[in-house]
């Protein structure tokens, strides 16, 4: 199928700003779904609130555009309600880690087969450029006119510590790898987190003099290293698959529990 066959073309062009990385993620996600060969009727996309969350509306899946931070909670119910479905959850960094932080760690702990795509552009875009829990220290935002003093979360470390069984990171520059990682994440039978460093030229870029979308992609290109190949220099972006372990999946465990209970074993 053509990429456009997965889109609700009547709503294109999308609302994202020129050069916004979210469009690249959308582009890669559709190709990953196509490569796997998923039927559109078998895919549920659940998003929260924010620029990233608008992705659901553009895709011709079963789509649920929910509340800020709560996408994983809605997705948990949707998946448990019909475990046959593939459930993909695109989130922003604020959506996933600030207001949705509790749901994020508990979804990871549970290891339900959901694919969480964290589109990390280090900023709240939709509300106009406030700092997020992923904004690096000493960077500027409309609510950090003197620079942030907050320490940022490392999405990969949070997801790993909380028990996600697939954790990967890439950037919007590394599109071939990105497609592969999203594909791996969707195919992985457990909770998958793919952090995607993603450019917001409009707010993060302007506030931090990072230049245009092109300049921000160049930054990803020049500062990314494969896992274990870096020097540990500050600002270095490690990309690749950090965790990939097959662990008992939540819906499967529940099914086993039901069988045991019904068989009188528990």
């Amino acid at each position: 199928m053509a990429v456009t066959d997965y889109l609700r073309e009547q709503f294109m062009p999308h609302i994202w700003c020129p050069g916004c990385g979210h469009g690249i993620v959308l582009n890669s996600l559709v190709r990953a779904v196509e490569q796997i060969g998923l039927e559109k009727n078998d895919v549920v996309m659940v998003s929260g609130i924010g620029c990233s969350a608008r992705m659901a509306g553009y895709l011709d899946f079963h789509t649920m555009h929910t509340l800020h931070g709560r996408a994983l909670a809605f997705a948990t119910g949707a998946k448990m309600g019909n475990p046959r479905l593939k459930v993909i959850v695109p989130m922003g960094d604020g959506d996933a880690l600030a207001i949705g932080g509790n749901h994020f760690i508990h979804a990871a702990r549970r290891n339900m087969d959901l694919t969480a795509i964290v589109m990390n552009n280090n900023i709240y875009g939709m509300t106009g450029g406030q700092f997020s829990p992923a904004t690096p220290k000493n960077r500027y935002a409309t609510t950090a006119p003197y620079g942030t003093i907050d320490e940022p979360f490392d999405v990969v470390k949070v997801a790993t510590a909380a028990g996600a069984s697939f954790v990967a990171r890439s950037t919007t520059y590394h599109v071939n790898e990105l497609i592969k990682l999203i594909r791996e994440g969707i195919e992985h039978p457990g909770f998958s987190v793919i952090e995607i460093l993603d450019q917001c030229p409009t707010y993060y870029g302007r506030k931090n003099l990072s230049g245009s979308a092109v300049d921000m992609l160049k930054h990803f290109k020049e500062n990314s290293v494969k896992i274990g190949k870096g020097t540990g220099a500050p600002g270095e972006i490690e990309i690749g698959v950090f965790v990939k372990e097959v662990r008992p999946e939540y819906c499967d465990k529940y099914e086993s529990l039901v069988k045991e209970v019904q068989g009188g074993k528990k």
Binding site: V3, G19, L26, T172, Y173, V175, A213
Partner: peptide, 13 residues
């Protein structure tokens, strides 16, 4: 295909 894959607007095929 690098332009097609990197296009944020899905404007290239």
């Amino acid at each position: 295909k690098m332009c097609e894959l990197r296009c944020p607007d899905i404007a290239i095929q």
